[in-house]
Structure formats: structure tokens, C-alpha cells
Design a binder for these strands. Structure first.
Lengths: 244, 244
DNA sequence: TAGTGGTCTAGACCACTAA
DNA sequence: TAGTGGTCTAGACCACTAG
């Protein structure tokens, strides 16, 4: 079959996807509505079933429809919001703000895992961990405080790195592949030591991001990053999925 | 028996996807590495190009590879961490904790947009907005404070709803389709009015989530939810993208 | 210009399940 | 049992771009 190659047009499956998504988001097709069968769309768009199927598969991934064999495809009920939160490397983050970046290592300690370490990294007693305390500065003002433990068994090279020049976050990102991370985000009042480290009043509101990174077998590292609340903000963009 | 086992076997494109993803995450294929051409994978897996192509397309969406015509497909540089942050309906959130949920509307006002409203919703001067102030309780203790404005032009039904029984969040989720949302997350110290509303000391650290929801054409609503910092935590799980 | 990926076709068989 | 979606095939043409 010949096709008219028109310039600068969306591909057909994108157009089908967009049409249906538009009808759902506009409310024209309410939750529960059965959308046309693949073979009907095949006729409507004068294309093969594979092309329709690709669009439908994407709608499923975006959570807009559910498909049931023998029944058809149905607009889903409104779902919980999920947002994509981008958590950047701190150095990049500061430099993206156009500010001078400075890193400083305050403490470095190679030791046996404490009870806390064991809980955070889920490792055995006496397993070696590298404990780091460091600060990141933006324009010579403390930007955030980083408290990190590294599971040395999973990153043996870490025990040789001194982290006096390069932050452990950037170093790990380059050295270690990881496959999953858990984040916890909360607000806390700065205690005395945090307040001193960040040069803010004791009791100030701080945004704390806790992150634990997993390589598929073990936890690699646990980090707590504390930002002065009035100087930092996390931005998350909801997207149905990835754009096509 | 030669018959395939009842165990749910992955489809072929999922297996290809998993194999390649595994090699990338394990570091076997470092960033910049060129992965086999489609026609090579076609031979390796003894399948058609479409099947390989489906897996490759998914790897692109997950941000693990980049593809260039005439050059091939390459493992991308380590990317910024992105995490999927689920933001739930507050009622569900409280009930999921096994606590009694109570909702209370403190203030409801239909008015012309102020300068602030215009900035937040990107609407014209004097456009009508519905302004709501309400509180959510868990086990009879204030759980969070919700300050919301609704763009009445996009949700005319809102001007008739009184929101004395149902929270505007749940109501909107049911009534209005939306396609995008922006979130801002920060830590702030409770001012006097917030402190009173949440029954916490003035100056306490609070986690603030600001969200603006878009229907593809206009902003529908802007909401600021304030949680006492010591009673709430956001949890985000990193995932490469959507699971297949 | 040659080789890659992007897209699409016109079928096919199968698994699942509502009727 | 019949009809839906899930997956796959063995081609094809085209756009893009490195060489």
C-alpha cells in the first residue's frame, strides 16, 4: 500500500494516541467508557492493527486505559497523582543556579558498622562502612549538609578515595551502577550542630532528603542531605509517562 | 514434557529489554558503549526486527540508551536521578495509616482573582476564582492544612459545590480530568496562623507541597498543603520508568 | 552513498474470558 | 465458543547522517 509521506507530521501511532488521550482528558470519554476496539480503530485510521496497538499500549503505560481480553479497552478511574521528581547532583545544581560551587569534607571515618549503619544499609554487624560528613557551598554560603555512609563491601574502591576534592555523590555516580533508590523527604528543625554547619539559627526549618541506593543485590550507600528550608525547593513535574 | 511450563514466561521483547538493561545497570556496557545493531540482535534472538525494536524503544524511554540513525544505539551517560513520587489523596493517606479521617472546611469564598491568584493560575484580572481553606484531621489531630484556589472558568460546577462534606481535592479528582501537574516541595517555619490551624508551636518546621494542575489548556487549581514536619514524610521510589 | 533506525503492513497464532 | 487483546513475523519504504 502506498503512503503519502507528508512532511513534519506526527507519526500515525502518535496521532492515534493523541486523539484518544485528548478525548479522555477532555472528559468526552469518561472513566469506564469503552473505547473503540482495535479493529474499529484500524478502519477509522485506515492502518494496520500493529499501529493501533502501539498507541493503545502507550495509553496503558500512561494509566489512561485498562484493557481486558474479550471485553475491550476502558478509560480508567482517575488515579493517584504520581510525579517525576528529578534529584540532581549537588554540584550541577549549584552551578545551574549560576553560583560558585565549593565542596568541603568535614569528616571521614572508616569504621565497623554501628547499629544505625546496619539498619540503614541492611548489612551484618562489623561490616566496614565509610562514614562521611561534608558540606556544599554556593557562592561561599553553605548550601547543604551531606551525611553519608558507604557500604565498603560493595564499593571497595571507596576506602582508597579520600573525597577531599570530589564529593562522594558525584564520585559514586561515576563509579557505581545502581538500579534503584528510595527517597524520603521531610521537614525538620535544625538542631545545634546542623545549624552551625549551615550557618543558620537553631530551630530553622530544613528540608531533609534521605536516599538509599541499591544495586540489585545490596545497599550501596545511604545519604542524608539537609538544606536550609528557605534556600531550597524541590520541583517535580507530573507527566503521564515519558513523552513520545 | 516438552510443553512450555505454566510459569509466566516473559514475552520476548521483555526478555531482550531485560537482558540489555541488566548489562547496562551492571556496568558491563558502560556509558558510551555501542550496543548491537537491531539486525544483530534479530539474529541473536532469532526474532523479527519489530520485536527487537520494541525493546529498544522502551530503553530509549527509560533513558538508558540514545539512538542515532546510521550510527547505532549507545548507552547514555549517567543521568540525574529521577524518582517517582506518588502524591495521594489526603483522605486515603490518612485512612491508609489506619486513622480516623475528618475533614473540615474553614473558609469558602467566591471572588475575583487577586494579583496572587492571577500569577498562580495564569488567568485574567477579575476572572472568578473559588478560594478554599480547609483542614484534614487524622485521629482528631490536625493532619494538614489545605489552601486552594480553583479556576472557576475551567470548573463551573465548583461554584455550586459547597465542599462542606467532601474535600476539594477528592472532588476535583473525580470531576476534572487533568493532564499535568507541577509540584514544589519545601520546608518552612509555621507562621502564627498556620501554627494555630495545625495546633503546633509557631516556628515549627513544616513540609509544604505546592501543586498546580493543568488540563492541557488552562490551570485548573492551585493548592498549598502544609504538614507538620514531624508528622509527615514523602516517600519516592526510583524506577527506571514504568514497569512493563 | 550506504547503513542505520523509524515506521508501517497484512497477515498469523495464541491466551484469556465473557457470554 | 467466539471475540478480544498480546505478541510476533517477514517483509517494506523512508529519513537521516556518517563517511
Amino acid at each position: 500500500m502506498d503512503k503519502a509521506p507528508r512532511v513534519q507530521e506526527k507519526s500515525l501511532h502518535e496521532r492515534i494516541l493523541g486523539d484518544i488521550e485528548g478525548r479522555i482528558l477532555s472528559g468526552e470519554w469518561a472513566p469506564g467508557h469503552r473505547i473503540p476496539f482495535e479493529h474499529e480503530l484500524t478502519q477509522e485510521y485506515a492502518c494496520s492493527r500493529m499501529t493501533v496497538n502501539k498507541a493503545m499500549g502507550e495509553l496503558v503505560k500512561r494509566g489512561l486505559i485498562e484493557r481486558r481480553r474479550r471485553s475491550g479497552s476502558f478509560v480508567t478511574q482517575p488515579h493517584a497523582q504520581s510525579a517525576v521528581l528529578e534529584i540532581h547532583d549537588i554540584q550541577r545544581e549549584v552551578q545551574a543556579l549560576g553560583l560558585k560551587y565549593l565542596y568541603r569534607l568535614d569528616n571521614r571515618q572508616l569504621r565497623k558498622a554501628t547499629a544505625d549503619d546496619r539498619r540503614l544499609l541492611e548489612i551484618k554487624p562489623n561490616a566496614p562502612v565509610l562514614s562521611l560528613l561534608c558540606r556544599h557551598y554556593a557562592a561561599d554560603v553553605p548550601f547543604c549538609l551531606e551525611e553519608r555512609i558507604i557500604n565498603v563491601a560493595t564499593v571497595p574502591e571507596a576506602s582508597d578515595a579520600d573525597f577531599s576534592e570530589v564529593g562522594p555523590g558525584s564520585w559514586l555516580l561515576k563509579m557505581v551502577p545502581w538500579s534503584a533508590a528510595e527517597h524520603r523527604i521531610r521537614a525538620v528543625a535544625a538542631d545545634k550542630s546542623v545549624a552551625e554547619a549551615l550557618a543558620i539559627p537553631t530551630g530553622s526549618a530544613c528540608l531533609v532528603i534521605e536516599r538509599r541506593t541499591w544495586n540489585g543485590q545490596n545497599y550501596i550507600t545511604h545519604v542524608t542531605v539537609t538544606y536550609p528550608g528557605d534556600r531550597h525547593e524541590l520541583v517535580a513535574q507530573f507527566m503521564p509517562s515519558q513523552q513520545m
